[in-house]
């Protein structure tokens, strides 16, 4: 994680989404979830991906997060066309360059908060002290250092989501993706999460692409990308 107040004028292109199409085939029914979506994400931006329900926001994020492959189109992340990568490279990319936060937190129930957070860092082969320190530092940042030995079921939804954010950030990813991270939370917890994301964006220059359908969250974003019926909504 970079330190110090970051200058947002850098303008380095980080993600270039070029005309991606995603078609689902279920029996005889073909759903065209994305019908040619293109947009760019620059370094240190906090982008809101918004649009009506079923418009394809999650689908976009899945493609960018390498959880799925588009039917056609290109996604260039930091100069690499990730749609062409093989399985192992994709894993490597997810581990080292991307962070992902789900709506339903999705922490591993057998692991404590600390273990959940350091798991991806340990996977990279860092020495124990390094991944421990990094995980503890992040738990401190999200305000849960005291709860680090608790298991997920002993924590509230908001707390679990903060663990998930710390986990997504532990390997200092280039981009953090978050798919409606506050949809399951009450207003207070929502504010905590949004403030945290803003904090990581502003203090450490963390690039974030977040799906939201809450108009009141627009104030947090540097820029909003709107999607409607599987297309970028330009109006």
């Amino acid at each position: 994680m970079k330190t110090g107040k970051q200058d947002k004028k850098e303008n380095r292109l980080l993600i270039d989404v070029k005309n991606i199409v995603k078609r689902y085939v279920t029996g005889d029914v073909i759903t065209e979830a994305l019908r040619g979506v293109s947009f760019k994400v620059y370094n240190k931006e906090f982008i809101g991906l918004m649009g009506p329900s079923g418009s394809g926001k999650s689908t976009v994020l899945h493609q960018l997060g390498l959880l799925d492959k588009p039917t056609s189109g290109q996604i260039i992340i930091d100069g690499v066309d990730v749609t062409q990568l093989h399985d192992i490279k994709r894993s490597y990319f997810r581990l080292h360059k991307l962070g992902y936060v789900f709506q339903q937190y999705r922490n591993l129930p057998e692991l404590t908060a600390l273990e959940n957070v350091y798991l991806p860092a340990r996977m990279t082969g860092w020495p124990r002290k390094k991944y421990m320190d990094q995980a503890k530092m992040l738990l401190e940042q999200v305000g849960l250092k005291e709860r680090m030995h608790h298991r997920p079921y002993e924590l509230s939804g908001g707390e679990q989501q903060r663990i998930a954010i710390a986990r997504a950030l532990v390997n200092k990813p280039d981009i953090l993706f978050a798919d409606e991270p506050t949809a399951n939370l009450d207003t207070d917890s929502t504010k905590v999460i949004m403030d945290l994301l803003k904090h990581f964006n502003e203090e450490f220059g963390q690039t974030i692409v977040m799906v939201s359908h809450e108009p009141e969250q627009i104030k947090y974003f540097d820029r909003v990308v709107r999607i409607k019926d599987g297309l970028i909504d330009l109006c």
Partner: peptide
């Protein structure tokens, strides 16, 4: 199943 999916999403390889 879903935890295995999450682990893969985090970048843990399926071989691991």
């Amino acid at each position: 199943r879903s935890q295995i999916g999450i682990m893969k999403a985090l970048g843990i390889t399926k071989e691991t």
